[in-house]
Each structure stands twice: as C-alpha cells, then as structure tokens.
Design a protein around this nucleic acid. Structure first.
Length: 503
RNA sequence: GGGCGCGUAGCUCAAUGGUAGAGCAGCGGCCUUUUAAGCCGUUUGUUGAGAGUUCGAGCCUCUCCGCGCUCACCA
C-alpha cells in the first residue's frame, strides 16, 4: 500500500469530493482539437479570425486573481496560457477550478484564442474539464530573485538520483530533458537513413547467445530452462553479423543493445546501444571515409550543423577528420617509439625509463602497454574528431594484420572530446589465422580467468566456408548522443539508466 | 571492488553537541489582464535506517541502505 504524505492526502480528498459531486477525475476520453503550438500558430496567422479550440495539457502554473484566473498548461508541444473569467464560466465554475484543480493535473479547456493585455496569446476559456487528477505534486519550477540580485531556484527537480530513478517526473518538469531524447531519436534515425541510403541492410541477430564474443568484457549469464543450458546476453554483434557476410549478404548493420557486466561510470552503463556495420570488399580506409561522412551527416541532422558545442570545445565533424598513426601519436605525446620495442619486456623498460611517473601493470602484454600509453598520453589530446590507426595485433584478435607487418593490424578508432567513439578494422577473414588468434588470446589471458574467451567453433566453421574481405565498424550510440547533446554523463542520455534497486 | 563526499518538510536549502528553520508548494482569506503575480494569515518533519557515546545527537562513533565524484576493471 502506498503511504501518502500530507499534500497527497489533500488531493486524494479532492478526488473523493469530485466523485461525490458527480465529476469523474479520470474520464476515459479527451477531445483535443489543437495542440498548444497549432492553436497559437493558427491564431497568429490571422488575429482577426476567430480560432475556436479545445486544448489539453498539464497545469504548470496557476494565478487566481479574484474573478479571473490565469493558468499555463503544457502539452507535448509547448505551453499555452488559459484565461478564465467569471463573465464566461460563471462564479461557481471559476471557484470550482480554483478550489479543485492543482498543479500537475491534466485538463481540457475549450474557448477562443485571443491576446491578453500583456500581449500573450491565450485561450479565453468557455468550458473546461478535468482529464486526470495528479495525486503526487510535481515540483513547480520557480526562481526567486533576492534583494542582492542572486537568483535562488526553488522547487525544481535536480537531484540526480530522483531525476534518473523517476525519469517520468524529470521529463514532466524539465523540458530540456525531453529535448535531449528527441535529439537521441533523431540521431538513431539519421544513422539508419545514412546506412539505408548506402545500401546497407538492417538485420537483427540474437541477443541471447549460447557463447559470447566479439569484445573483451564479462557477460551477463542467464539460463534457458527447457534447453537446460546457460545463455549469455550478447556483449557485441560482431561474430553474428560477420556470419552474414559468409552468406553473401554484402552490407549489413544492426543498431541494438549490448550488455556488459562491468563497472558503471560516466561513460559506461551495463546495457548500451551499439551500431555495427560490416561491408564486404571494403577495407578500413574505406570504412574511415564512410564513418566521417556518416557522423557529420548525423551531426547536421541532429544539431543543424557539423560544428557542435561540447563543453568548452567546438567540435568540427566535417570531413576529413584528422588522421594520426598510432605510433606517431604515442611518440609525440609520450616520447616513446613503440616500433623500437618489439617485446613487452623491452617496452616496459622503456616506459619506466622515459616516463618514470607512469605506472603500467608490469604483467601487461605489449599490446596492453601500448594501450596504456594511448589512454595515458594520447587519448586526452584527441578533442577534435580524430582517427587513430594501425593498432597492435595482440589487442585486436578479430582484425587483419598489415601486409608485411605481422605485429600491426589494420584497425582504427575514432576519438572525439577525449574519448573513444568508434572502433573499426579490416576484418580478419582467414579462418586459420583466426583460430590461431583465439588460441593466443587464451594463452595471454590464462592468468585471469575472467578475461579468457570461449572459442567459438561455429564462427570458425562459418569462416571456413569462405568470408569475403571486408571492413567492419562499431560505435557507441550513447556516447555520440552525449557529444551531440552536450551531456557529460551517459546517464543523461539514457531514459532509465542502471541504478541499484531501491529499499 | 577501493578512496572521497552527500542524504534535513512535497521541492531547493539553512541550523557551535543545547527549543529543527527559510523560500517555494500546500491550506484559509483579499484581488476583473496576470506572467515563475501581489498582499494578509497559517500548517507541515521517524533529520535515509539501525545501534552506540553523551545530561543532551541533524551534528560525534560504528553498521547498513541509496546517490554523486573519483580510481580500478572495461580489445
């Protein structure tokens, strides 16, 4: 049973009184004829014409003023002021409105659009009706300017926990939050449009998988009762999408949810939205070009420009993006030339000599040491959209080696605002090399069982049928949403981010 | 998982170890063009939960719960 606070009890009392008076507080149907925006636009188009309208929305402010009442209602398209006067609605109805209606209630009002003396386009109400009584008060937004000129915000909803946990309340009172999610939808739509227009086929592959793979993350485990087997929530789409290339589907993409049983941070949520595409007969350089075109297209669709403000930076997404070979970038920012150190031991020694303050894990593989240098020195400098390319083989088990350079693979990552946005490579299509890589990984990670990856025999079988050379791509859609909406936490771009359960 | 911080009225926040407060919201009035109206009056609390120290705990200690920041983990 719900426990009601004193404010809620007053409103519950009103619900009972309404029913006693024969007024249904939750009627089944509404009869809106105009949205707030439509009614205002129609009136403003020709103010001499009578615009009759029935509007509906949530009461966001109320100013009873004797024989007049002003109230703003808000719908999905904006706010509009209601003007109630005793002359039209009568004393009894005006008193009823003032007494029984509260901030947060959904109401419907019929009347004629007009402009008040203060100049605001409003609805001159003839008739009104309750659509849904609000029991729990929403915070009314109100700021008060103090004598010393400072503005004190009152009764807003800005506790980050409540905003995330009760997103419905957050959305109801914070219009900018609604705007963020409108932009998110636009982003996803623009990515689809772009890929569709480039002849990619959208597909859906299993979320419940008998084996997980395609990334280095711990999975969520569940169990299928009838099959009597454990199943995993996917950590990436990669291995299934590439199976489709074996089946002669040349260009495929999927936008969906990945699940990773890892830590939560401002850029990590246990479930997140990923875009992956695979493109037969292309290599990573072609993927690079398609990426910068796709992201700049999305930037324009979502923000109206390829220039996007993010914090103190203005990011320019217009192609071509900066390209930095990983070796050069690391050399420039850390002073270490990774090409000179072909083993983990040698590279570790060099790091300890040249960057004595750095503290890499001494048990790291060479690839992990390079990754350490990358994230420690190079990554923070990559503010403008930048492609970093040519990665060490041993942290890229699904990417193809560069011809003539077995330690390096044809891989790039896109960076923006100092964090990783996407990851792509010329995909490994040699089944024998792939098997070797899987085995190597097993060896490299032997010490830490959690990072050891299962060998996907079915994937190898698919590759043995023959996989065309291809380029593949993966991108965190949540992170791109953050960049395009100038939000600095992934929670701000997820409607319902992962939180510990209450109680 | 580690470190640091936070949790007080519906909301935003105050309160040397000594009577728990303000604004807004609410409630009762006044007000026929307001603008996040104004004026008069007024109510509201298991101070996240539990235990301890103390004559006395919102404040100090411990345990737990939740959140934030951060580090670690995160091809």
């Amino acid at each position: 049973m719900a426990e009601y606070n004193s404010l809620e009890k007053i409103r519950l009392q009103k619900v009972e009184e309404l029913r006693a008076e024969g007024v249904e507080p939750y009627p089944t149907r509404a009869q809106r004829t105009h949205t707030s925006a439509q009614a205002i636009a129609e009136f403003e188009a020709d103010e001499t014409r009578e615009v009759k309208a029935t509007l509906a929305g949530r009461i966001r402010s109320m100013r009873p003023k004797g024989k007049l009442t002003f109230a703003h209602i808000e719908d999905g398209y904006g706010k509009v002021q209601l003007f109630l006067r005793v002359n039209e609605v009568g004393e009894a109805n005006l008193g009823f409105f003032n007494r029984m209606f509260d901030l947060g209630d959904f109401v419907e009002a019929t009347g004629v659009m007009f402009r008040t003396k203060a100049g605001e386009v409003s609805l001159h109400v003839r008739d009104f009706k309750l659509l849904a009584k609000s029991i729990t008060p929403l915070p009314a937004d109100k700021d008060v300017t103090q004598e010393d000129g400072t503005v004190v915000r009152h009764a807003t909803l800005d506790d980050p926990e409540i905003r995330a946990r009760q997103r419905y309340a957050d959305l109801a009172v914070n219009p900018d939050v609604r705007e963020t999610f409108r932009k998110r939808a636009k982003l996803v739509k623009s990515l689809r449009t772009f890929l569709d227009d480039h002849d990619f086929l959208e597909v859906e592959t299993p979320i419940l998988q008998p084996l997980y793979g395609g990334a280095a993350a711990r999975p969520f485990v569940t169990h299928h009762n009838e099959l009597e087997q454990d199943m995993y929530l996917r950590i990436s789409f990669e291995l299934y999408l590439k199976r489709l290339l074996v089946g002669n589907m040349e260009r495929v993409y999927e936008i969906g949810r990945d699940f990773r049983n890892e830590g939560v941070s401002f850029k990590h949520n246990p479930e997140f939205t990923q875009l992956e595409f695979y493109w037969a007969y292309a290599d990573y350089l072609q993927v690079m070009e398609l990426t910068e075109q796709m992201v700049s297209y999305a930037a324009e669709q979502v923000t109206g420009s390829t220039k996007v403000k993010f914090g103190e930076h203005e990011l320019e997404f217009k192609p071509p993006w900066k390209r930095i070979e990983m070796r050069d970038g690391i050399l420039e920012t850390s002073g270490i030339d990774i090409a000179e150190y072909k083993t983990a031991e040698a590279l570790l020694k060099a790091i300890n000599e040249k960057q004595p303050k750095a503290a890499p894990d001494p048990k790291s593989t060479r690839g992990k040491l390079i990754d350490f240098l990358l994230s420690e020195y190079l990554e923070p400098t990559l503010i403008q959209p930048t492609f970093l390319y040519n990665y060490p083989r041993d942290i890229s088990p699904l990417a193809k080696s560069m011809p003539g350079d077995p330690l390096t693979v044809e891989r790039f990552e896109g960076y923006v605002a100092g964090f990783e946005l996407c990851n792509a490579f010329t995909e490994l299509n040699d089944p024998l090399d792939q098997e070797q890589r899987f085995l190597e990984m097993g060896r490299d990670y032997e010490a830490d069982d959690e990072e050891k990856h299962p060998l996907d025999e079915d994937y190898l079988r698919a590759m043995r049928y023959g996989m065309p050379p291809n380029g593949g791509f993966g991108m965190g859609v949540d992170r791109l949403t953050m960049v395009f909406t100038n939000k600095h936490s992934i929670r701000e771009v997820l409607l319902f981010p992962a939180l510990r359960k209450e109680e």
